[in-house]
Design a protein around this nucleic acid. Structure first.
Lengths: 340, 340
DNA sequence: AGGCAAATGAGGTGCGTACCTCAAAATTTG
DNA sequence: CAAATTTTGAGGTACGCACCTCATTTGCCT
């Protein structure tokens, strides 16, 4: 049988009350008692029964996803994943809510975060660009014992915050490597397209992409980033112009998750079958494009993994456990037509 | 507050005992009572508290991994993953054991499976080739209420068994696609190497590989599969011979997880920098080979995911829940130097 | 209507832990 | 040394549910 606190008390030669004091770090315990209990824990291999702990504490986990109000297909995928994670988690006492707001407005984000009460929310997964206001609001949340996970946004390298998402520099590098290899030594230029270069994600991807192209595939060169701003007409215009100025375009890299508008425009400028096109995120549109060879590869971060990972981290923080790190690294997935 | 069975009883207008009878499918309940309870469940959104259920049932989960006795680096990775999954799972009442035996011997496998007792083991993750004997033993395990997951082996398409692993046909196709694209229309031949074609995995990978090469990349052709049988001398000999007979080899596909022996032999026959080489599984050796460009891509199935997935399935089966399918599909990962 | 089986309710116990109170013992302090 | 303080132990209740017993009610059949 699995040892219980009773067994532990017996093994340590102390009372249940003392064991309880040690385990839950209550005051008024002698160093000697602490040692006796800790020795016994190791000796008999005691492990707290988490089910019983949660039952006794009558604890529920309330987590909140803060997501953009407007978004692309990838956001819909995220919402769907959150939704389908709900049911199985509910029986494990995890309740998940979603709030959507204008994440580009730092004040709106900060206001929302400030309004959260400890007894209403235990953890937040925040998908919003970093700003001084939000950074400050996050710190104050931590003071109120509400943990925060930066979710598919913000900086990966902040020491004191949890982060869920891919390394966008590596993602860009991977895209570069694919295009370079698929191109196989021919010379030419690469069109690089995004919605707005304003986004941290795009900046980093471009960084990684450029580095790989310059260092490893010197026969091809990167053109300046084209920004569509989500506007089909604008996209059409600037892409057409770029193709007019550069006859040697052999590839296109679409950095934003929304690929429909750029791809549409590209299809009017070149034969997509001969143009190497790499885009980001597995959305229904991108999948279809990959299948009928308008796209050659997709760089993806699995939204389901991201959602579950964020929830696992928040849960671990709430339990004052260390997140099981290895599991929480979101992979940079490469999708071809065959491994969809 | 979260509704409890008491709330449910009140809402349904029946006693606690009846609620219990319905929830746990005990006999002697009228259809009317069942309906009343089920309606109330929906109405008030009742969800069993799994922690309390497990506590009351005093249930522990005992799972067993049955793995090959001898193996390559990938097997070591698997063992390490099982090991590191142990600690966090233990506090959730999951105990994981590993048995290693000669899985190529159907009798040994069947004997082991037959010896398992219901009160010792609740579920088995079985990594062994299929055979009539094991198939039979698995069926008898199911009768004893011990569920079985076919783990990175066996058939994916058996309806009545759970399976954890990748689709090897698709994996082979993905390898083919990568080689085809990296080769970019040049003509030539592909050397295909494995330990033994006897393994189901290799057969399927070859199937998918061939299909993609024939249909999509007609300028290159596949040579017959070379079997190393894990013997460096033999590998050296047959690979050298193949290169002597075919001067136009542009790529090699190593189908087995053990890539060291074939890669060593290949390095004596060609300049690996110019030869496109794709191998399977992320092992320390393969990672290093990918970094220094002896390998061009790795097709991998994440061992950590596989282990955790198998455990989740076994747990769900033990609880008589449906496994959360979407999460349990093991991805075919493509690794390049940039997304390691 | 009476007999019988099926259905239901009331109530109890235990799972492993948290958290509380109160009294007793041990240790420190002056 | 006594008094004050800290430490320890004994015991109880609660968490939400499973599982059990026994008495009572209900519905069905003849």
């Amino acid at each position: 049988m699995r040892p219980t606190i009773k067994d532990l008390a017996k093994a340590a030669g102390v009372s249940l009350a003392t064991v309880d004091r040690v385990l839950n770090e209550r005051p008024n315990v002698s160093a000697r008692a602490v040692r006796k209990v800790q020795d016994a824990i190791k000796r008999i291999g005691f492990e707290r029964n988490l089910a019983a702990v949660n039952l006794a504490r009558n604890r529920v986990y309330r987590f909140l996803f803060v997501l953009p109000k407007h978004g692309d297909q990838y956001l819909s995928e995220l919402l769907a994943e959150i939704d389908s994670a709900r049911a199985p988690l509910k029986s494990e006492l995890v309740e998940v809510e979603v709030v959507r707001l204008d994440v580009e407005n730092p004040h709106a984000v900060a206001n929302l975060l400030s309004s959260l009460q400890t007894d209403e929310v235990n953890g937040v997964a925040l998908m919003a660009p970093e700003s001084p206001q939000t950074r400050d609001a996050v710190l104050r949340l931590n003071e109120r014992d509400i943990s925060v996970v930066h979710f598919l946004s913000g900086q990966a390298n902040l020491e004191h915050h949890d982060f869920v998402g891919i390394d966008n520099i590596a993602a860009g590098a991977t895209a570069g490597r694919l295009i370079g290899r698929f191109n196989a030594g021919r010379s030419g230029a690469i069109a690089i397209i995004t919605e707005t270069i304003h986004a941290q994600d795009s900046l980093k991807r471009r960084l990684g992409f450029d580095r790989v192209i310059h260092q490893i595939f010197p026969t091809i060169s990167c053109l300046p980033t084209l920004e569509t701003h989500g506007d089909p007409a604008r996209a059409e215009r600037i892409i057409k112009q770029t193709f007019a100025n550069h006859e040697d375009i052999v590839a296109a890299y679409i950095m934003s998750p929304e690929a429909r508008v750029p791809l549409e425009a590209l299809s009017h400028c070149a034969d997509l079958k001969n143009l190497i096109v790499v885009a980001h995120e597995r959305t229904p549109f991108n999948e279809e494009a990959l299948r009928d060879e308008r796209l050659d590869a997709i760089i993806a971060q699995n939204p389901g993994h991201a959602v579950r990972s964020a929830l696992r981290i928040l849960r671990a923080r709430r339990d004052r456990r260390q997140p099981f790190a290895a599991q929480e690294k979101i992979r940079i997935e490469i999708l071809l037509a065959d491994n969809l």
